[in-house]
Design a protein around this nucleic acid. Structure first.
Length: 218
DNA sequence: ACCCAGGTGGCCC
DNA sequence: GGGCCACATGGG
């Protein structure tokens, strides 16, 4: 199994259209923070609540009442952290990019990525999700699901984020949207308990691999 | 009564 | 650099 074949199989089975629905890049940023360690169903509920309160807006979010924000975010879990981080993000965008907060997503991908990573609550996975789904950049999100599927399909075996990301980014030949689609499809496959993971093979590391003895899943 | 979810940051060694 | 831990609600 190689990357392009995996992507092809997944595209035959799942649809990437509107996998990450949003009305603005800022909504993607907020959603990316809210969805950390949380199901999208709960995040969608919170996004709706934020929207109805007019808070999916940099200016309004930045000046939102924190306790109020916390109670709105509660169903998404880790609500105190997330409220502080989302408000912190909005505040940063407002002061750093006064004319247009979304200018932050302009410029070279790697420099936007570094700036995202400097913010509280935005790590590699969240930064890459924002780049891919909020700013249409070519980046692969090397999340836990990605590591798991690539390992079980025998494509690549590693738990290291940077290693997995650079492997995919330098080996997937498929054109534009390849990284975007691959990640979206991997998550759908992971959550779809009714369908088996595509045929599994041990990775090329052989007995050196710490997962070598893992049994194949159905 | 467990376990997991579209992670991150802090602290320790 | 890795290994633990807190953060928290909701659903199986």
């Amino acid at each position: 199994m190689d990357l392009d074949r995996l992507l092809g199989l997944l595209r035959d089975t799942y649809d990437v259209q509107d996998w990450w629905p949003s009305e603005s890049p800022f909504e993607v940023m907020v959603g990316a923070i809210l969805t950390q360690q949380t199901t999208w169903e709960n995040v969608a509920k919170v996004l709706d609540r934020l929207r109805s309160e007019g808070l999916l807006d940099v200016e309004r979010m930045a000046s939102a009442d924190l306790p109020m924000l916390e109670s709105t975010i509660r169903p998404a879990g880790f609500y105190k952290q997330k409220a502080k981080r989302v408000k912190g993000l909005a505040t940063y965008l407002r002061v750093r990019y006064t004319s247009d907060p979304m200018l932050m997503l302009n410029g070279p991908t790697e420099s936007v990525r570094r700036e995202l990573l400097s913010l509280d609550g935005i790590g590699k996975e969240t930064a890459d999700s924002i780049l891919v789904f909020g700013a249409q950049r070519e980046k692969f999100v090397a999340a836990a699901y990605s590591a798991r599927i690539l390992r079980r399909t025998g494509v690549f075996c590693s738990e290291n984020y940077d290693e997995i990301q650079s492997f995919v980014e330098s080996n997937l030949k498929c054109g534009p949207k390849g990284f975007h689609d691959l990640y979206a499809l991997i998550v759908q496959l992971s959550k779809d308990t009714c369908r088996p993971v595509p045929a599994c093979a041990r990775c090329s590391l052989g007995p050196e691999c710490k997962f070598f003895t893992e049994q194949r899943r159905r």
